[in-house]
Design a protein around this nucleic acid. Sequence first.
RNA 1: GCCGGGGUGGCGAAACUGGUUAGACGCGAGGGACUUAAAAUCCCUUGGGCGAAAGCCCAUCUGGGUUCGACUCCCAGCCCCGGCACCA
Length: 837
Amino acid sequence: MTAQTTPASGPPEPPAYIPATVESKWRERWAARGTNVASIEGSDRPFYALMMFPYPSAEGLHVGNLFAFTGNDIFARFQRLQGRQVFEPIGFDAFGIHSENYALKVGTHPMELIPRNVANFTRQLTAAGFMVDWTRTVDTTHPSYYRWTQWVFLQLFKRGLAYRKKAAVNWCPSCMTVLANEQVEGGACERCGTQVEQRALEQWFFHITDYAARLLGNLDSLDWSNTTKTAQRTWIGRSEGAEIRFRILNPLEDAGSAAVHVSTQITPGTRELPVFTTRPDTIFGATYLVLAPEHPLLDDIVSEEQRSAVVAYRVQASKQDLITRKSVREKTGVFTGAYAVNPATGEMIPVWTADYVLMDYGTGAIMAVPGHDERDFEFAQAFGLPVERVVAGPGQKAKTPLTEAYTETEGATLVNSEKFNGYSIDEGKKAITAWLEEQHAAKAVTNYRLHDWCISRQRYWGPPIPIIHCDACGAVPVPDADLPVILPNIPDFKPDDSGVSPLARHEEWYRVPCPACGKPARRETDVSDTFLDSGWYFLRYPSVRAADADAAPFNAEITKRWLPVDSYIGGNEHAVLHLLYSRFLTMVLHDAGHLAFEEPFTKFRAHGLIIRDGAKMSKSKGNVVIPDVYINEWGADTFRTYLMFLGPFEEGGDFRDAGISGVRRFLDRIWASVQAASATGAPHEEVMRKLHATIRKVGEDIPRLQYNTAIAAMMEYVNVLRRGERTPHRAEVEPLVQLVSPFAPHVAEELWEMLGHTTGIFDSGWPAFDAALAAGDTMTIAVQVNGKTRGSVVVPQSADEPAVVAAAKADAAVAKFFPASPRKVIYVPGRILNVVG
RNA sequence: GCCGGGGUGGCGAAACUGGUUAGACGCGAGGGACUUAAAAUCCCUUGGGCGAAAGCCCAUCUGGGUUCGACUCCCAGCCCCGGCACCA
């Protein structure tokens, strides 16, 4: 503390509140004392407070990041004040396409860029006063980390969950490179504007679809934000239905056949086409089939007359980026010349190919029921295909014509469906599936919308996939002892005309002997997806300083004690990908015997989004708010508290700087009150009552992340504390300093020290709250007459209904409305009295 | 289109499971004190209408409903934000 120079005459001036001084003092003090270093080994009540680690962009942290981190920090500090040993780590998700694109743009190598960005982030995070354990951080681009990312890949590979297949990527023919979906704008490359195409490349996939049922089922028991769970459920997209097999007629045998009814028997050797449908009940209305243009059976079934048209259509379909391909457009398609047999009606129906059917869902083929599916209806209209009604809604008949697809199921019954006429939709689904099953033409199946996770990136800035391709042995995993496969520092990390991964241009790097047979072989030159880096980082944090940190991704003992994560706070933009992948990897590692739990995050809360002028902050809009200026001007404590006072944490809101002065005044008043506090005499009864009500309110609000109302409650208390410019008592202010400490940690420490404490405030515990004291010995009951509030009465806590009624009659304001003979009296104890006359 | 979340003063927002005269807390605005003056600080007022006042009436997106009592529950509709979306 620096004493102000005081004029000889007056009393000594109390020290002024200068945030910069206080904050730098406590930053140093915390670092020197190791205040924020978690006692990972010796903890009996551990609490793991995780926040989503940032991608260290060149622009630095923006207020959105700070808002999220502050919310987590308050929760973490509160847990610590509750006596938990808290671990609040931070790290850097620095691999990936964002970093690489930025590096390309400024022409600096990412290996040079990232450390600079990380240093800047560290400076900002420190300035914000987070209770971060800086001795345990993670940088996904460091070989000591990605060695284990590669290990995770190999765990999946060894369990048969990593496989290679050809898959479409967005391809810019001008830049000769692969583009992520977000780099495609309206079908064109965001950089050069060239029309983007699809290109099929051999890529690595993780078999997450194997886990779809578990990923979905476990959601019910997780304490997560509802919005996040809903998003995951939608993403996984379970649907029940049937896989129905249609016999494809042999064009030679059946050529020229005029017969409409043909054998429905599927005999060995006949070609058949399985389709997935959620509406097996409508099979009698299936008037044609559609195959995705990429369907492998297309070549086999297409007739000679139609072949050139089908091939042309397929080429045209591939000349579309993945986004446009899947967006709703005018229906297009081509007849294949082939026919199939509807197993229910025995009728011959045409087989088409159209791009509204997607290869990567179900079986890549559908039975079209234009009468009861909007898309099929549209297609049938466009190409003059027959539309049959097989479902009748209330008031409709079997012959009521269809002017649009009738898709309602409520109260509807089957029609034109032979023996199933009159069945409800649900009955029809069951009965028809069973009937087709008897004929071996169908089986009940559950399908998921979730796709396998493509982890290949034909890029530079990521961990090399630890596989060696050998002509003799196939894909051979890099032996654990040879990990990490170091990402080489190559100057030409830019994608170029060769059209392959940058690493594929470095023969000296990829030419290696096969680990299995020793013959010349070739490293995988794709790197892995950033979501793999971030899919397991929470497992690494507690163990980064473990004795076996170089021998294992996570220490068994430590992991047992600290995981799963007690509380995870992050943005809902990661509701599906990051959170789903993390859950999946955890499940796999659990199944492999590495983890005792299968869900990584016991509790997850999605914070709201901070927007600016009604729009998401983005560089292109130029509305990004940089926190540094605010921290410099107002102090980190004020800025943190202000961000939390903006609105409900889980809702976010529009950032404005109007109002920040109010929060600063609030801290100023606390400061002044502590300076002025007197230890003599007794604390004021009324003030103490308010204090205890405030302790309760703040203690209830923080765990619910209702920070804005917690701050309001403290402000209210400060108003009471200072009312009439009274001198506060020490006992009235000391607990307040503890209450405010999660929000404004630096100034709270400073005041705590001024109050004579020699140990840190965050180890001081949470003030106890006295319910009886908070309640006082009287209560105020609102009095209504005929539902209109007419006044209120103050009665002793012990007052019962007759006593309250008596008091109400005696009250002048109420008495004039009081009915002579009440018909009904409703008394809600402690709250309200309503007299109906 | 489907699934979430919302709609309350000039503004950000409160209101426990329907129950203390809706709008706490803060910003902004108006007035006052202190000051030569300003800043800072402190005090008062601040949803709308009528009224000299006491007071009365109207107000939580709109329209219905349930209830002694509705921002809160139900039905119908409008608008905003977020996610998903040719997934059969």
